[in-house]
Design a protein around this nucleic acid. Structure first.
Length: 937
DNA sequence: GAGCACTGC
């Protein structure tokens, strides 16, 4: 093996290709750019490409990763497993199987799904008024008159008049006529407008007022989508107030598990997800007259997905009006996508925000940056530092190539020295602290909002400020962390104005960029980075890495300082780096795994997944789509020709990731639905465990307490929820949550989601709500719960390998991985069972398994992938040969027979949900339980 | 000795 210079990659690979070596090491300590270059090269040359995480090496290979791993024996975790079974168990299973084969053998009905289309919504979404309910034309006319009369009357009330003055000052108001004309004359209109122009509150309202006063009120049905739940509610209530009504009258909202709407509602705000669900049942959006899609510039997956559907829908619904609303000026892209539809721009109105870049901040604050790696090299030349560090992004190197003295000659030498020492590779917490100090010392009053990338930096900075007796008197400052997983998120303090002489300083992640708005911010300190997901389709792993933000994000962050008065934005990166920022962040659809999206596409019946996604504004990588389809096939949601299977059709009705959906179905079939509901709710929403700043150890301890000796984060979730539910019965859930580091808000949401899932399972016939005991027979059986987790989470399997007194972990795709330190399994040295199943695997500084459950061979054999007889002889394979099981002929046969029965039972129930599992499956289920229990520790 | 951006049905 040989390490090569990047320039010679291509030639050397060509040479090696014809030689005998199976693989070649290309580079150690690679950057993301290297990885991309090499993977492109390998793809073009028909080779395989591997990026090792641990050794940090790029390798080209003639063999694909899985087989390659299998060849490499123990080191990569691929081993032969000998399965043993006690004669007692063997005997019991034999007799249990005998009884099942005698009793249940009737064929399943193949047409169990014929009535599926007729089922009304299971998501609490009302179909648009069905034809029989529509008032006749006379009644409609009367209704339109009544609406108009009411609108006129309300206009005269004092509260409406008072708000009217404010409305008329908004820039959108001046555009009212032009906007309404354009809407009436064009099917599609793109409106761009800066924050504060009033587009979100005014444009939908203009349409509503116009329709009602033109006596078309009865026929008008306006929907406006928002990417976030909070905005759907707050915009709807704002408009209701401006119209002098209560929310839910002519203006309402609908978000998951919560709605305020009525028969009178003519303007409905909903999340994009809600509209997408409605589109499955009502592909033509019957009766919708106007659809406004807000915040499309954010390029969320749902919004991009919706745009594909809408472009296909418009020709079928020539009367439907579509208005796309974007905050920034890339309206042209959306206009082009919709056949050069007209665009309209509304100027914004915010207070001016001055902007300082790193060089100006240094000049003003006189802060000296000390080189972080002085000592490695004397004089710390930037060129040499470049060699010493491995991971560096393009923008960081771009700045290092600049000649500081000539580029910044008008700046002081102190500033120039600091710029020499500055590195873009890491966030300099000292610099952030110094900047905050500078603002507190020399600038006027007002809250400071600091944008950082994550938990670690917030924690470090908070500690620094608290330890240093900040500016001589820390009582003058209220320093608040703001992170999605910290228990402070819901505290009022963040929004409240602090008492006079006390300055509020908020240390936040991206959550403060659009989700949480703090009105009294006057100063923004922007570190220029954010943690961003990406999807490595080659290694099938999601990544979460800090990266430079886009110009659009930088603009949004700056805008957070100008909500109540003129502000200042301190950007802790040089202007040359800002200039090189991408205009926009990559759309989510090309940064995420796509299995749920692909399943959703199948349920819309809009042709092949590939051809549908090719119509996207920016289509995702073909390999990412391939991976998603392959996964859906592996879990049995799609067949070989990419058609939905009966299981796949059930999964479409469940608003969760397909794996989690499968867990719910299997949980219902194997009569432990309560644990499945709880775990599914937590995985689909978020973990109820909070991450407090200074009581981290105690919080970890609480989580481990819930897990007991289960070696399972999922059991910890389950027990925490059960504890909460019991505490709630006793009325002391607040204390319980506080003592156990749980978020009451998250647990309440989980409660609602559990109910939704239960309703859905009942709608599709998988549970009978009148018999709660029947489908919870095994709800306290740990083996059965583990098995259900295995069924749902497969193929997310980790092999545990004993290494002396500790355990090493391996996956098929990536080889060695680590347990996330936040997992209850992080401190477990030895596991009693040979595998873990996991729900999330993320590559950050290493590949981490975030939450896992220890499971047995039998769980995998009964609920994992198909059992394939191994090519080499006796034994069974799974996961493309990565997992291999061997056993005596008798035992092997017994296992295969039982697995055959399990599959038969599952298929029967899935094809005909009315089947009574407690009768039909009695023998199989007890045999499975018997088997699972026999391998208990 | 480690580490946990953010939405959403």
């Amino acid at each position: 093996m040989e390490v090569l210079d990047e320039n010679e990659w291509w030639n050397k690979i060509e040479q090696w290709k014809t030689g005998g070596e199976q693989e070649m090491l290309i580079k150690r300590n690679f950057s993301r750019g290297d990885q991309q270059t090499l993977s492109d090269m390998a793809l073009q040359m028909g080779l395989y490409f591997h990026a090792y995480n641990k050794g940090k090496a790029l390798v080209v290979s003639k063999v694909p990763l899985p087989d390659y791993r299998a060849d490499l024996d123990e080191r990569h975790g691929s081993t032969q497993k000998e399965i043993k079974m006690s004669t007692e168990t063997e005997r019991k299973l034999g007799s249990l199987l005998k009884t099942t084969q005698e009793s249940g053998s009737s064929g399943a009905s193949a047409s169990a799904f014929n009535d599926q289309q007729d089922r009304t919504s299971t998501l609490g979404l009302k179909r648009p008024d069905s034809a029989s309910k529509l008032p006749d034309s006379l009644e409609k006319e009367k209704f339109s008159f009544a609406l108009k009369e009411r609108q006129e009357k309300l206009k005269a009330t004092e509260s409406v008049k008072a708000l009217k003055a404010f409305r008329e000052k908004l820039p959108a108001f001046k555009m009212k006529e032009e906007f309404l004309n354009s809407v009436s004359q064009n099917q599609v209109l793109v409106v761009s407008g800066e924050t504060g122009c009033g587009k979100t509150t005014q444009l939908p309202q203009f349409i509503l007022e116009e329709e009602i006063s033109s006596l078309r009120g009865a026929d008008c049905n306006i929907i406006c989508t928002q990417p976030r739940r909070i905005s759907a509610i707050s915009v709807a209530s704002r408009i209701s107030a401006e119209r002098g009504e209560s929310i839910g009258e002519s203006v309402g909202y609908q978000i998951r598990l919560e709605s305020k709407r009525s028969d009178q509602t003519r303007l409905l705000f909903c999340t994009t997800g809600v509209l997408l669900r409605r589109l499955i049942e009502d592909p033509n959006l019957t009766n919708v007259s106007h659809l406004l899609v807000d915040e499309i510039h954010e390029r969320g997956m749902n919004e991009d997905f919706l745009l594909i559907i809408l472009r296909d829908l418009l020709p079928r619904r020539p009367d439907l009006r579509l208005i796309l609303m974007s905050a920034t000026i890339n309206a042209d892209m959306f206009s082009t996508y919709f056949g050069n539809s007209p665009t309209m721009h509304i100027p914004g109105f915010t207070f001016p925000v001055a902007e300082l870049f790193l060089e100006d901040v240094l000049e003003k604050s006189r802060y000296n940056i000390k080189s972080s790696d002085s000592g490695n090299y004397q004089g710390s030349s930037r060129g040499r530092r470049r060699e010493s560090e491995s991971k560096k992004d393009d923008l960081t190197t771009l700045f290092e190539d600049i000649d500081i003295n000539s580029h910044y000659k008008s700046y002081s030498s102190a500033t120039r020295n600091s710029l020499e020492a500055w590195s873009g590779a890491q966030i300099d917490v000292d610099l952030v602290e110094a900047t905050i100090e500078h603002i507190c010392r020399l600038e006027g009053g007002g809250a400071i909002l600091v944008f950082l990338t994550g938990w670690d930096e917030i924690s470090k900075l908070l500690e620094k400020i608290n330890m240093n007796n900040f500016l001589g008197d820390s009582s003058k400052f209220l320093v608040l962390p703001l992170h999605g997983s910290m228990p402070t998120v819901n505290q009022r303090e963040i929004f409240d104005r602090p008492p006079p002489n006390k300055r509020k300083i908020v240390l936040a992640t991206n959550i403060a960029e659009s989700s949480i708005t703090i009105d009294d911010v006057v100063y923004v300190v922007d570190c220029g980075k954010a943690k961003e997901t990406s999807y490595d389709a080659l290694n099938k792993v999601a990544c979460l890495l800090p990266s430079w933000i886009s110009k659009a994000s930088a603009h949004q962050r700056r805008g957070r300082a100008g909500r109540v008065q003129a502000g200042v934005c301190y950007r802790l990166y040089p202007k040359v780096i800002y200039d090189a920022f991408p205009q926009y962040q990559l759309p989510e659809i090309i940064r995420t795994p796509l299995q749920e999206l692909c399943l959703h596409i199948k349920s819309l019946q809009v042709g092949s997944i590939g051809s549908f996604l090719a119509k996207a504004l920016q289509p995702p990588d073909a390999l990412a789509v391939e991976n998603a389809i392959e996964l859906l096939k592996t879990i049995g949601a799609l067949n070989d020709v990419e058609e939905l299977t009966p299981l796949g059709r059930h999964l479409c009705t469940l608003p969760v990731d397909p794996n989690i959906g499968k867990m719910l179905l299997i949980g219902a079939i194997f009569q432990c639905v309560n644990p499945a509901l709880t775990i599914a709710a937590a995985l689909a929403y978020r973990s109820p465990f909070v991450l407090p700043l200074n009581r981290k150890e105690e919080a970890d301890e609480a989580k481990r307490y819930f897990a007991g000796d289960s070696c399972s984060d999922h059991i910890a979730l389950l027990k925490a929820y059960e504890g909460y539910r019991d505490a709630k019965r006793g009325g002391n859930e607040k204390d319980f949550c506080w003592q156990n580091f749980l978020s009451p808000v998250t647990l309440r949401m989980m409660e609602d989601m559990r109910n939704q899932f239960l309703d859905l399972l009942s709608d599709i016939g998988f549970v009978d709500k009148s018999k709660p005991n029947a489908y919870n027979q095994y709800s306290y059986d740990m083996e059965m719960i583990s098995a259900v987790l295995c069924a749902g989470l497969y193929p997310n399997v980790v092999q545990c390998k004993r290494r002396g007194k500790r355990t090493a972990f391996y996956t098929k795709e990536l080889g060695k991985v680590d347990i996330h330190p936040g997992s209850v399994n992080a401190r477990v040295n030895l596991f009693s069972l040979p595998y873990l199943v996991y729900s999330e695997k993320v590559k950050t500084t290493s590949v981490y398994i975030r939450d896992s459950t220890n499971i047995s061979d039998y769980a995998l054999l009964m609920f994992g992938g198909n059992l394939i007889p191994s090519k080499t002889g006796e034994g069974i394979e799974m996961l493309g040969g990565y997992l291999h099981f061997s056993a005596s002929k008798n035992i092997l046969e017994l296992i295969q027979r039982l697995r055959g029965e399990v599959d038969k039972l599952l298929n029967k129930k899935i094809e005909d949900p009315s089947l009574d599992i407690t009768v039909e499956g009695k023998g199989v289920v007890s045999a499975v339980v018997e088997l699972l229990r026999s391998q208990k520790h």
